[in-house]
Each structure stands twice: as structure tokens, then as C-alpha cells.
Amino acid sequence: MFVFDWGGLYHQPALGWLTAGVVTTLAVTVAAVPLASILAVVIAALRLERGLLRWSAIAVIELFRNTPLLVQLLFWYFAGFAALPRSWKRWIADSHPWAVLPPGVPLVTPEFLVAVWGLAVFTAVFLAEEIRTGLSAVPAGQIEAARAQGFSRIDVLRFVLLPQAFLNAWQPLVGQFLNLMKLSSLASSIGLGEITYQARTIESYNAHAVEAFAVGTVLYLIIGLAMGRLLIWLGPQRPGSRRRAAAEAHLVETGGDAL
């Protein structure tokens, strides 16, 4: 019968590797989520335009939605990164002591930057489609009302459509953010030292494969559970929800100074 032997994990160097793995997974997620969101809003907005802009948005969505993320990461790492200006590559290759997280996780590396970019682009096209669904749920009358008030197209999007799209689509959006976190495991293939990469390192170091991947799985689970709850809590609130009502009561008390 198989006997678990956890000793191979909580001794150095394995423990340090796992810690670095968790920090890297968190860092890549924290960096890629906002980037993906910005890209998604741009793609969704272009998707609403007519003509060439619309078709290029559709092309980008279809390209990144229908090809494997692993292939995309390898493409960005080998082809994309190589195409960067030489001065950028030289700068990235330099040492950046200010950009190192404890316990020694460097952030300005080709692996980290490519992982953030690749995950963000891949996630953005899915987010863009969720946002578009959220946008189409907003009644057209509100767009007319905003145009009649003198809002420009971009301001209608900013102040009327997007807030409601995010509200309507927040649950599926959170699902995509969780996917991003889990898919960061694929960045182990380009050498990013995240959780999966570190579990494999431990496996090749002391052959404790089952224990290492069991711990890795639990770490993803914990991060995912925490992240999902945090994003729901931070996310837009339904009009009239309890937390929003409390915030508004506070606003009334303070006479709106917080605005």
C-alpha cells in the first residue's frame, strides 16, 4: 500500500520552492487580472463598433478563443518576446532588485512578463464576450436616454452601459478570473516558477510526486476559494443589496462628503 511521506515537502529546499510557487501564482494572477480586464473592455467596445474595428475585434476573439493557451504561451515566449526591441530585452535581462518578491521571486523576467501577457490576452477575449452579453441585457431605451442627454458614445459606455454590464455579468466574469489563476499552471511550460513548476521540481528532486502534486492541488483550491469570495465581495453590488444600502446610509450620514 502507498504510504504518504510528507517530510519531503516541509524540509528545505522543498518548502522554499513551494512558497516561491505560491507567491509566483498569486503575483501572476494579480498582475494579469487587471490587464485582462482593460484589454477586455477595449475589445468589447471595438466589437460594438462597425466595419473594420468590429471585424478585427471578432478576429482577435476567435483567434485566441479557439487556439490552446499552451500554444499561445509558447508563441509569445519564443516568437513574441524575440520580436521586442533589443533595448527592451536588454532592460528586462538586467537585474531589478526592486522588483523581487520574498522569498526571492523576480518579477521582471521574460517568463513572468510573457505569462502575464499571455494569460491576460487569452482571458480578455472570454471576458469581452461575457461583457458583451452583459451589455446586450441593458435595455436600448437607456442608451437613447443618455444620448438625448448629450452623452458621447464613449461616455454612454462608461457611465451607463459598462457599470450595468459588469453588474449583469459579474458571476461569469469571476469564473473567468478563476480560470486565469488555474491556467497559470500552463506557464510552467515556459519556465515560470509557479506552483505546478515547483511541484515538478520537488518530484524530480526527491521523487515525492504524489505528495507534491497533492499539496499543489490543495494550494490551488485554497487560492481559488479565497479569490472567488474576495472578487464577489469586491464586485459591483446589485441595486438595493445590503452592503450597498449600508454604504448609502453612510453617505447620507456624512452628507455625501465621501463622494
Binding site: 435595455p139 431605451g141 437607456q142 436616454a145 438625448a148 442627454q149 448629450g150 451607463v160
Partner: peptide, 15 residues
């Protein structure tokens, strides 16, 4: 448009 107020049949308030 900012000088012309418009009131719609379906109100069209921002939800």
C-alpha cells in the same frame, strides 16, 4: 442635446 430635455414613454431611467 444638453439644451433639450427628453421624456420617454418608457421612462428609460438608468437602472
Amino acid at each position: 442635446r444638453t439644451r433639450i430635455g427628453f421624456v420617454f414613454q418608457q421612462f428609460n431611467l438608468y437602472a
